[in-house]
């Protein structure tokens, strides 16, 4: 009996640790800067988190399977370039085009991973290079600012409904869709099964390859959507627009409590993780930490979170 409690204790603790961290962080930053707890600041925080959350949601599907996607920041940047280049000609079609390119890129990296049996971090690192190169060539290596006419098409990102910024609503829609996919569909169940034990999932007749490819498609599609939103918010597109977002996105997933070994995790945890990252970022800005030097903290947080959440029984040999 005691044994069970001993085992249950830390696990329960681990499950609520991210949320407790978030609450404590909000309280600490709130005490330091009371203005932080005002409604307008909190809405601003939520809007700033939306892009990070969407990126992290996509990559959550891949991490649940036990893989990784290192191409999301290049995909998001490419999507912003596509929007900036084509919105004048196609209007809203530009957004559809960008997201479609995302789905295609995800399909390609998924196929490279599954069919050619290239490990996911290498396949997506390489795909990231291809996407970055595409963005560089199509934008002629410069940042493209959206014209005034083009900005009219961005109101679905920049506008507000009853005082709530649209970008938060988009984030909530993504949350609903992703949560449904992850918790209430066969795909979600199979992903968790594959992450928990691939040979067992395979033996039970799960079409492992198909689930994996779909996860990479989702990851790249969400990344492209994040890029589209980023282009709208910053009113520009550039091949390095999202370059600084890879590490925070993966950190958000892991900090939320999704294990890098797969099988354990949820979209809710990613939401909590993304909020933690945002609050930490704001806290550091209050403290006057240089935006690039913030990577020191995120890198350390990432390693610590991986070390805490990882399921070591699943990997006898850590490579």
């Amino acid at each position: 009996m005691q044994n069970i409690f001993a085992r249950l204790g830390p696990d329960k603790l681990r499950q609520w640790l991210p949320l407790a961290t978030l609450v404590i962080l909000v309280a600490v930053v709130g005490v330091m800067q009371p203005v932080f707890l005002e409604l307008s600041t909190l809405l601003q925080l939520a809007s700033d988190t939306a892009v990070l959350f969407i990126l992290a949601t996509g990559v959550t599907f891949v991490i649940m399977l036990g893989g990784i996607d290192l191409s999301i920041q290049s995909m998001a940047s490419l999507a912003s370039v596509i929007v900036a280049l084509t919105v004048a000609r196609y209007g809203y079609g530009a957004f559809v085009l960008a997201v479609a390119v995302g789905a295609l890129a995800g399909l390609l990296s998924g196929l490279a991973h599954v069919r050619l049996k290239v490990p996911s971090f290498i396949a997506t690192l390489a795909m990231g290079g291809v996407l970055f190169s595409t963005a560089l060539v199509s934008s002629k290596e410069r940042s493209i600012t959206l014209g005034d006419v083009d900005r009219n098409y961005q109101t679905w990102v920049t506008g507000t409904v009853f005082g709530v910024p649209n970008v938060i609503i988009i984030g909530l829609i993504v949350l609903a869709i992703a949560h449904t996919l992850q918790a209430h569909t066969r795909f979600g169940r199979y992903s968790a099964a594959i992450g928990a034990g691939e040979p067992a999932a395979y033996a039970s007749g799960v079409k492992v390859d198909r689930q994996k490819v779909f996860a990479y498609v989702l990851s790249a599609t969400f990344a492209a959507l994040a890029g589209v939103i980023l282009a709208g918010r910053l009113a520009s597109g550039s091949p390095t627009l999202a370059a600084e977002l890879l590490l925070p996105s993966i950190a958000a997933v892991v900090v939320g409590g999704t294990a890098i070994t797969g099988g354990v995790g949820s979209i809710w945890r990613t939401l909590v993780g993304a909020l933690i990252i945002s609050v930490v970022r704001i806290g550091m800005t209050f403290l006057g930490v240089n935006i690039f030097a913030q990577n020191i903290v995120f890198g350390a947080v990432l390693i610590a979170a991986v070390a805490i959440t990882i399921d070591r029984s699943k990997i006898p040999i850590v490579k």
């Binding site: 590490l247 890098i260 890198g299 350390a300 990432l302 390693i303 991986v306 990882i310 490579k319």
Partner: peptide
């Protein structure tokens, strides 16, 4: 016991 790609991804940015 952190997989090397995660440990080194962290130290890359650090």
């Amino acid at each position: 016991k952190v997989p090397s790609f995660m440990a080194t991804l962290g130290t890359w940015f650090i």
